[in-house]
Design a protein around this nucleic acid. Structure first.
Lengths: 339, 339
DNA sequence: CGACGCAATCGAAGCGGTTCGACAGTGAGC
DNA sequence: GCTCACTGTCGAACCGCTTCGATTGCGTCG
């Protein structure tokens, strides 16, 4: 493997000049620049990551902490991951993957060994045990999700409160008077994951504002769970005319239960889902839905953490919470209730 | 952040001694060892990853190249990823994620900059363009999947040929005389992904051995695709009494189509699936299936690549192909055909 | 015409570990 | 009592790159 000295010799310059050509941190005459670049090409030079990290105190690696809790929808997670990796590359960074079972220790390890320049943490709980650790790390970090007390953190997420409200408002506008929220699995609420809690809060507040009767029902991922919850909903409140579904895995089971029980969508029951567009599309009828802008969130997370990395400003003057406004796409699953 | 010199001073030894305590590469008296370990604990010392990588020529990072092609089943991919990350940690390594759109350049970059000690590459095609690159890298790599010509590579995979045969044999044993394979999406075959091709080959060979009439039908991921393929199968060959399904996304649609068309499982149609156990379990009736041992494969991949990293033997004396024997679990979806 | 400023480049000192050869001390063997 | 083999520890030389201060050559200004 060619080293910087080889390149320097080949181009007839000092090693530092090569370094400056590469980093652009000092002016280099166009002529020399081209000569150096050519030598780099000819020799196939690639700087040694470790050496570079040691000397520059920058590893060009970002850590991404992904959740693998029960009750999360894996494909959505993967959308985040891909978006983060792709965006990170635009900032000349790679992504290191940390999983749940490494826990908090993993955060400390990668940060304290200077393995990474910054961290992105997904699936934030309201009282997340990782937060105090993150705060102590002296490496920039960004949360995907919003804790109870975000004070000095930088958080990014879909505005689930607004999303819950938006779903309800859409249904209220259509004239529905009783709506049920079919939510995430009970585990998710038990963990007090921010998004589930906020969505149902937004939903409930909007309901009382609009004077719509509303109930919330956690729901497991299996078709059986979906059936049970659905029958419970319609038994307890036969006047329910609309559902908000915030559970990708339950969508199918729910639709099937409705079919089996002779309730047509949207004639008898309207449905609004919070789910990726692919899922909303592939069922029949296509669902009116609020998508989770995974790509956008991932991008923004990387941009934010990179800004901090590059700014070098670690003693941030406070945090920031970026909530992405929900976009509701009307499809074929919502209509006014039958009179 | 404490450095090795701080630890050395605190413990009253030379920096090299601290290093040897940590690496265990030279004998250190138990007494000194304890003293050093204590100092490490007290100071919260964590070695600088870059410095370590530079000096030792080892980054303690593995690269994992994941596929994101159309037609792949994301949750299964994630199982691999988790298994790889978890196992890597047992070898004191972290995992860097590379995605498709970085392409071959990504491989070269992480390998040539010494960012990683070894690479694991998923979703191998029969003629995979990444192979020549991998060969030139002078870093150990392991393939998850098997190309046409694995010569000097180390490959790990489920034995899809055997799996195809096993499914057919199970059905033949039950007395079925005509079986259809509902396969992966057409894109997957077009790319000549090893697993899809091998499975159908094993299936066909077994069929002709057992004198069972067999057909193969690529199938898209949507419910509509599943319906179309299913009706085609039973129209073209009304005597079909069993299906082998190698397509996680189509399972549901298929089951529903059968239900809608009055074909009971297993009384009228037997089904064997190649899919994760979770999927086999959550449908009704639970499916007889061959699981994809993602966890096992991921583990083995890491073990293999780590053996090469630690062996330092890069000029391997040839490769190896580890095929994991398929295990068929009989559940409620298979039975003898009606007479 | 000398002082000065600026652009372009160089040289050397780190960055924080690992590793190798050297060396002191100790106990065994003869 | 002397040699020899070991064990445990030390010191110094790297690993390959970045960065900072110094240096050179030039055009400009007073």
């Amino acid at each position: 493997m060619a080293k910087i000295d080889d390149v320097a010799r080949h181009a007839g310059v000092a090693p530092s000049t090569v370094s400056y050509v590469l980093s652009g941190k000092r002016a280099i005459s166009e002529e020399t620049r081209q000569r150096v670049l050519k030598s780099i090409r000819v020799l196939g030079y690639q700087p040694h990551a470790g050496a570079r990290a040691l000397a520059s105190n920058r590893s060009n690696v970002l850590a991404l902490f992904i959740p693998l809790h029960a009750g999360i929808h894996v494909p959505v997670i993967m959308q985040f991951v891909v978006s983060v990796v792709t965006t990170a590359r635009q900032f000349d960074h790679d992504v290191l993957l940390l999983t749940q079972d490494e826990g908090v220790k993993g955060l400390e390890r990668v940060a304290n060994t200077s393995l990474v320049d910054g961290l992105i943490v997904m699936d934030i709980e309201l009282q997340d045990p990782r937060l105090p650790v993150l705060r102590s790390l002296r490496r920039p970090s960004v949360l995907i999700g919003v804790p109870d007390d975000p004070d000095d953190f930088h958080c990014i997420d879909l505005d689930f409160t607004a999303a819950g409200a938006k779903c309800l408002d859409h249904l209220a506008d259509l004239g529905h008077r009783r709506v049920a929220l079919i939510g995430s699995p009970p585990e998710v609420y038990k963990r007090e994951t921010g998004y589930a809690t906020r969505l149902s809060a937004g939903f409930k507040v909007a309901a009382s504002r609009r004077k719509v009767a509303a109930t919330v029902h956690p729901c497991g991922s299996s078709n059986l769970d979906a059936s049970l919850v659905a029958s419970e909903v319609f038994e307890d409140h036969p006047d329910t005319t609309a559902l908000v579904v915030h559970n990708e895995d339950a969508v199918d089971g729910l639709m099937r239960w409705l079919g089996r029980n002779g309730r047509r969508v949207p004639e008898d029951v309207s449905i609004v889902a919070i789910c990726p567009d692919e899922i909303a599309h592939r069922v029949n009828p296509p669902l009116t839905s609020v998508a989770i802008p995974a790509e956008e969130i991932g991008e923004e997370a990387v941009r934010t953490v990179m800004a901090m990395v590059e700014g070098g400003v670690m003693d941030e003057l406070g945090g920031s919470t970026t909530l992405i406004g929900p976009r509701l796409t009307v499809r074929d699953s919502t209509a006014p209730p039958k009179p």
